[in-house]
Design a protein around this nucleic acid. Structure first.
Length: 330
DNA sequence: AAAAGTTCCAACCGCAAGGGA
DNA sequence: GTCCCTTGCGGTTGGAACTTT
């Protein structure tokens, strides 16, 4: 048994809105408001449109102070940061960006930001491979056993980060699959790109386990960086309310898609430095960020790194404390 | 110049939650 | 408690616009 349609589909116009329809809807809502009933609204105005369609048109296009296109660097960062924190909760993300709609942000993420990050990843992988070749040649020529600074800077951009793996300057095991063969350094570019395309083009659920297992991409061991339980990046009340509903990697707690991206990135993503930290590790037990000499709570460290987002986050956190977030917030 | 491929975004769809009867 | 209607959300799609071959 199917669900009852929200309107009479036969008598409803679909597709792009005409300027006349826009004008009708806009002037009516500006004068009378929505009347609290979108379903009845098109009949009142004499529009052959579904109520849902009217609502969408108003919210995404006709509403005053809507901005289209031209996302700033800061907005990019906010979107990325929030996506990392809460996943594809576009309405919440949109609420932090005045004038932006969830649909706009969703489209922007899917068509631009995601590709921007992936493009960087590909570039970085190429850079890494070049460095690897040069290093191999250099070792062949007699520099055995000493890793050059140039090479290290590509694979381990932050020298301090290395010390957190084992306390000395031994490189971390970049291949946290079972294959530790050095040949893995010869990244299978086609396979990794294909894998990414499959992930980014499709859903990110059921094939997750197998694709991860068969990964041949050189990876940064996220669990090591974040002390095993990245969920505790957020305050407990926050992550219970929001992140529990995301498609997550059970070991890292990231939204699956982002987790994959990070795992595939050998170099930090631009604009997300705070997320990676530099010498910091996030303690899986108490949510604090610690380094050899310091220990900070997320709420303490975030204002130093991203003031705007921090304020936003704290505001959201307060809201979430007062009212747990549900899938469909209203 | 034109065909093929790609990108982008407005709009649609179905689902889940809220709330009133 | 549950049924029904409406709203809000996130995923997906269709097609116009643009780029490449």
């Amino acid at each position: 048994m199917g669900r009852a349609p929200c309107c009479d589909k036969a008598n409803v116009k679909k597709g792009p809105w005409s300027p006349e329809e826009d004008a009708k809807l806009k002037s009516y809502i500006e004068q009378n408001g929505t009347g609290g009933n979108w379903i009845a609204l098109p009949q009142k105005i004499g529009l052959k449109r579904c109520g849902k369609s009217c609502r969408l048109r108003w919210l995404n296009y006709l509403r005053p102070n809507i901005k289209h296109g031209g996302f700033s660097e800061e907005e990019d960062n906010i979107i990325c940061s929030l996506y990392i924190s809460i996943g594809s909760r576009w309405s919440i993300i949109a609420a932090q960006l005045p004038g932006r709609t969830d649909n706009d942000i969703k489209n922007y993420w899917n068509t631009r930001l995601k590709k921007k990050l992936l493009g960087k990843q590909r570039k970085d992988n190429q850079q890494a491979r070049r460095a690897l070749k040069q290093e191999a040649k250099r070792v062949e020529d007699g520099g055995l056993g000493v890793v050059s600074d140039a090479f290290r800077s590509v694979y381990w951009p932050d020298q301090q980060q290395m010390t957190m793996f084992d306390g000395v300057n031994n490189p971390p095991d970049l291949h946290h699959n079972n294959n530790n063969d050095n040949n893995n350094n010869n990244i299978d570019d086609h396979a990794s790109i294909r894998k990414l395309l499959i992930k980014l083009g499709g859903r990110f659920s059921s094939d997750e386990g197998t694709s991860r297992a068969s990964s041949s991409v050189s990876v940064m061991p996220t669990q090591q960086i974040y002390g095993g339980d990245t969920m505790n990046l957020m305050q407990p009340s926050f992550h219970e309310g929001v992140n529990s509903q995301l498609m997550q990697n059970p070991s890292t707690g990231f939204p699956t898609e982002l987790d994959e991206m990070f795992q595939c990135n050998t170099v930090k993503l631009e604009g997300l430095d705070y997320f990676y930290g530099t010498a910091n590790m996030i303690d899986g037990n108490n949510g604090s960020i610690s380094s050899a000499s310091t220990s900070m709570n997320w709420t303490e460290v975030s204002p130093l790194i991203y003031p705007t987002l921090s304020a936003t986050y704290q505001g959201m956190q307060q809201c979430l404390l007062e009212e747990p977030v549900h899938h469909g917030t209203q």
